[in-house]
Amino acid sequence: MRWIPFVILVYVLIVLQTTMGSALTFVWQGVGRIGPDLLAIMAVFVALRASTLLDTMIAGWILGLALGLTAVGGPGTATSLGPMSLTYAMAAGLIFKLREVVFSDRFLTQAALAFVFCLFAHMSWLLIQATLAWAWDGVGRMLIQALGLAVYTGLLMMVGFRLLRRIERWFIGAPMRRGRGARGALRMM
């Protein structure tokens, strides 16, 4: 991974998420606002293209931290900072492991992986935050919001993957190779 360009790209994405992201949200009456998680698209892309699990999890951690720094709302009055980076790193690791058993070049597979990533990362985050703050009021509704967010992000993943593929060489030094190369990379762990 080329970490400096990667961090710059994370910065650009978080700016987009906190500004233009609101333009992409809509209200689901009775549940709440539903919007995409642009950083999850990046995390899934890295998990599908990075050469090692460590790179993937560190990238996931950075993305999760950036998201945690800009997300105050959640269970309780204000959310803690650590859980999002933790769940993002774990979810990125999960997708990295899953990529060997799926055809990751397919649109639907990418969408499904983004869905699984968001579902795992956001639902875990909500449950951890609710436990830390011991505030369970409205958590059920937020879990449904997370489901909506996962579907939305999965749909955008199909476009996001193509866009990120064009600039992949800027932040992923040596993309993953299928077959023995990929296994060799895993052994580097």
């Binding site: 790179d55 560190i58 720094l69 803690s80 900072l81 650590g82 859980p83 951890i128 830390l132």
Partner: peptide, 27 residues
């Protein structure tokens, strides 16, 4: 990189436990 990741995950746990004491100034 294993060390880096271990430190990062440890930091996450510490920040989670510290709550708003860390989150507010960091944000």
């Amino acid at each position: 990189l294993q060390w880096v990741l271990t430190v990062m995950l440890g930091l996450s746990i510490l920040m989670s436990v510290a709550g708003q004491g860390v989150a507010r100034p960091a944000r």
